[in-house]
């Protein structure tokens, strides 16, 4: 390495980063494929009890073993990935939507509106969100919709702050003034002029939010607040807890899938960030 000039070092590092982000993208592509077509790929019905012996170790017939009720762990992981990814994606989407609306309003209008919205955002940031999510799901019922809603309603403050700071720096740029003089409406200015220029950090944040939402869902499910009609990776870990001694595969594989997906999302988010903000490169 010492023979290389600093600029060559930087490009080498970038190349390596590209390899990492290519790997992450490949993993995420595969996960998305499983989430959409997993049901067709599953060798067994994921909910069917007794397709094999109970708590059987991984074997050619049951690649990742069977659980305490004789269900096929591999098939359940395929189905569980779908639910976990669905929760992650929809929660991140709603989070981003709320965050963009609040952040754009605060950043664009400034003044009292900004003050009020930011005080509310700060209060939401202080509230311990995992505990409130548990309370909401426990009170309103553990189904996928409530879980998604609870996660989304507690995760938006970060997005709002990012969008607000982008809007604050963009709103006084010349292209915005030009559009305003040309007679663009406030909505046009916010959504068609400023927002497209603020999209980079929003996309990075949304990527990370998907992973965060998946971890939150797993945590809620692990505490017994899962949708029992819908196998998710978190629910599988909840069920595994009682059988750690006799069936380690019930815990190892679902958790590994969560970790792999979240890891890929984080790595992808990092490389996207480098792409948008070259000053951060190489850190």
């Amino acid at each position: 390495m010492t023979l290389l000039s600093p600029s060559m070092r930087t490009s080498l590092r970038l190349l390596k980063k590209n390899k990492v982000s290519a790997g992450a993208t490949a993993v995420l592509g595969a996960v998305l494929f499983v989430a959409v077509f997993g049901a067709a790929l599953a060798p067994y019905n994921p909910g069917q009890v007794g397709v094999g012996p109970t708590t059987a170790a991984p074997s050619p017939a049951h690649l990742l073993g069977t659980d305490d009720l004789g269900r096929d762990v591999f098939s359940r992981i395929l189905a569980g990935t779908r639910a976990s990814v669905a929760v992650g994606l929809s929660a991140a989407m709603i989070t981003t939507l709320i965050g963009v609306l609040v952040g754009a309003t605060a950043g664009y209008f400034g003044g009292t509106i900004d003050d009020v919205l930011m005080r509310i955002t700060e209060i939401f940031q202080v509230i311990p969100r995992f505990f409130l999510a548990v309370l909401m799901v426990a009170f309103f019922g553990a189904n996928l919709l409530n879980i998604i809603f609870a996660i989304a309603i507690l995760s938006w403050p970060e997005t709002a702050r990012i969008v607000r700071s982008e809007f604050l720096s963009l709103r006084s740029r010349q292209f915005v003034s030009a559009a305003r003089i040309a007679g663009a409406s406030t909505a046009t200015l916010i959504f068609l002029e400023i927002l497209p220029n603020a999209l980079g950090p929003v996309v990075v944040n949304a990527t990370l939010q998907v992973g965060q939402a998946m971890i939150l869902e797993a945590g809620l499910s692990y505490l017994g607040l899962a949708d029992r009609n819908q196998v998710s990776l978190g629910l599988m870990l909840f069920e595994a807890q009682q059988f750690l001694r006799s069936a380690w595969w019930m815990s190892l594989f679902p958790g590994a899938v969560i970790t792999l997906v979240v890891l890929s999302l984080n790595l992808l988010g990092d490389s996207l960030n480098d792409l948008i903000d070259p000053r951060r490169r190489g850190r």
Partner: peptide
């Protein structure tokens, strides 16, 4: 550290226990 960051803590706990 990047991997440790992505793991659900309770899953790591289950593995340690096993």
């Amino acid at each position: 550290s990047i991997v440790g960051f992505a793991m659900p803590a309770f899953w790591l706990g289950q593995l340690m226990l096993i």
